[in-house]
Design a protein around this nucleic acid. Sequence first.
DNA 1: TCAAAGTTTCAGAAATTCCTGAAAATTGAG
DNA 2: CTCAATTTTCAGGAATTTCTGAAACTTTGA
Lengths: 188, 188
Amino acid sequence: MNATPLVQSFVSHFGEMGSRWGINRTVGQIYALLFVSEKPLNADEIAERLSFSRSNVSMGLKELESWRLVRLQHYPGDRREYFSTPDDVWAIFKTLAEERKKREVEPTLTMLRGAMMETAGSEADRHAQARMKEMYQLIELVTTWFSDIQHMDVETLQRLMKLGSQVQKVLQFTQSLSKLTGRDTERE
Amino acid sequence: MNATPLVQSFVSHFGEMGSRWGINRTVGQIYALLFVSEKPLNADEIAERLSFSRSNVSMGLKELESWRLVRLQHYPGDRREYFSTPDDVWAIFKTLAEERKKREVEPTLTMLRGAMMETAGSEADRHAQARMKEMYQLIELVTTWFSDIQHMDVETLQRLMKLGSQVQKVLQFTQSLSKLTGRDTERE
DNA sequence: TCAAAGTTTCAGAAATTCCTGAAAATTGAG
DNA sequence: CTCAATTTTCAGGAATTTCTGAAACTTTGA
C-alpha cells in the first residue's frame, strides 16, 4: 500500500472493524480509502493502493454499491469509472441505518410476525410467543422512532441530540401543559 | 433439534442473523433458545436441543457471558449451571447497545483522535484529517446522545419514541419560549 | 463491425473461522 | 483428601469465506 501512515492506519482500522460486523476486510478498506480521498478513484488505483487484486476490488465496489455507500462518476475522455463517497456524513449515517434496517431488522420482524400468527401447540409455545411479542414490540417501536428521526432535518436533529436527556424536562413540561389544555401531544 | 416448529424457526433465524453480523451461528441460536425458554437450561440441555457438541455450547455461552446477555443460576442439590436471558427486553437492548459501543465505537473514536493529533505531511493528509474530524464529530454526537437516552427511565423513553417526529414541534415551541424568557434550554 | 479498454464472473487456491472429541482442569460432596 | 460430576481448553479436521488469475463479457470509438 502506498499511503501516508495517517491514511494507512485509518484504512486498516476499517478493515478490522469491517470484519467485526458483517462486511469483509476488503470492503471496509476500500470504503475507508474512498472516504478520506480528495478525489474520486478508479478501480485500478484502489487495487494498487491497497494491493488487492483487481477483481477483488471489483467485488468490493459492487458490495459497497449495494449498500448505496459509494457514488460513481465519469470524466470526459476517460472510460474508466471513478468512485467516491458522499460528502455529507449525516447522509452516510442515514443510508447505513436504512440499509441495515432493510437487511437485518425487516426480515426479523417478518419472521416474528409469522411466528406470532401460528397457533401455539403447547404451554412452551405460548410462552415463546409471548416473548417474541415483547421482542417484536420493542423492535418496532425503536425502528419506527428511528425512521421518524431520519425524516427530521439535520438542524432539528442536532438540536435534539444536543439537548440530550434534558428532553425529559421538556416532555414533562409539555405533558403538564396538555393536562391543562386537555389535548394530548402523543399520537395514536 | 427437538423443538416445536415455532421455536425452531425463531432459533434458526437467529442463527442466520447472527452470522450476518459479528456473532456466529451457534451463539445466535443458543441465545434465541434461551430467550424463548420458559425456564433456565443447562449446557447439556442446550447441546441436546440444538445438536451442538457440548464444547461448542460451552464456548458459545462464554461468548454470551462476555456480552452480558445471559444470566447464570444454580438449583439446590444440582451442581450444573443453568442459563437464562434477562426478562426485560429494554434492559437487553441497552446491554447490547453498551457492549457494541464498547467494542466497535470506542476503538474507532480512539483511532480517530490519534489520527487527528498527527501532523499532516501533505495536502492529502490534511484533507484526510478533515474528513476524519467530520466522522469523529458525528459519531461522538450520536453516541453521547445514545448514552443520554439510555439513562432515561423507560417510561420517558417510550413517551419520547411514541412522540416520534412530533418532538420537532415541541422543540420549536420550547425554543420560542426560551426566546421569550431569555433562557436557553440547550446545554453547553 | 471490429478492436481496444475496461469490468465482471467464476472456479478453485488460500486463509480464516467454526466445531468437535479428547483430555485437562475445576468444583463440591462426602 | 478423594472421587465423580461438570466445565473448559485446545489441537486439528470440517466448513465457510475470501481472494486471485484467467476468461468472458460489455462498452465505446473509429
